[in-house]
Design a protein around this nucleic acid. Structure first.
Lengths: 115, 115
DNA sequence: TGTATAGTTGCGCATATATGCAACTATAAT
DNA sequence: ATTATAGTTGCATATATGCGCAACTATACA
């Protein structure tokens, strides 16, 4: 029973929800420090939340030098991808602020801020 | 921001998840005492969890005599109905046990156990 | 009127979980 | 070697949350 609950627990916390939301909308990978800047949350908290999202099988981590690059997992099962795709129906002001900030990061660094 | 998180918080607790799961698969309404029997959870806990699911706008309550009949809300927005429909991709053993038990309740009472 | 059943609610307790801080590792640059 | 940046982790604390119990309301029925 734990298994199907894991993704809901993961998404029921605001910071983790915002991480998944911007990862779903990002066209490139984001590095951990960028996520911390975009969401204005201390990096040590981002690190902990990413561990939880990773345990739930929702994200992919790629290490390159000092950086860890994040993206949505590319092997989501039907259930998980369906839940995550549901986020496409949302248009809350607050998460759109995150998206705007995320896109500015991508633009301002031409996608290679951390490389 | 609270709004989109509410449904994930609601579904991140096992009893509430199981309630939504059987309501989604029930063809008839279920009364609260039946839900308590099916899930083998004290009714006072079911009552509390139903309040949370109700606050999240996920269920419909209909009072008739001593009984409260439950069903999924018939006015779910796109986001919520998409999340709930994701449950259709699951086939966990444990929740199937709940379904079997739920169907036995419907059969054994010809849908009018509580009326 | 008295009793039984369905459901609610407040309280105290135990557990789970998120946070901040500080110390730590790892990689890169000078 | 030294310094700076990215990231991790353990600990203490605060808060959130679910539970059991007991007392309560509400409806039906004899």
């Amino acid at each position: 029973m734990e298994y199907p609950l894991e993704i809901f627990k993961a998404l029921s916390e605001e910071t983790r929800f915002r991480i998944i939301f911007i990862l779903r909308n990002a066209k490139d990978e984001l590095c951990e420090c960028d996520i911390a800047d975009i969401l204005d949350v201390p990096q040590y908290n981002i690190s902990k939340h990413l561990n939880i999202l990773d345990s739930a099988g929702m994200i992919k981590k790629r290490k390159e030098g000092r950086w860890i690059f994040l993206s949505l997992s590319d092997s989501l099962d039907k259930f998980k991808s369906s839940v995550i795709n549901s986020l496409g129906h949302l248009n809350s002001e607050l998460i759109n602020e995150d998206l705007t900030k995320m896109k500015q990061f991508l633009i301002s660094t031409s996608g290679n801020r951390c490389s």
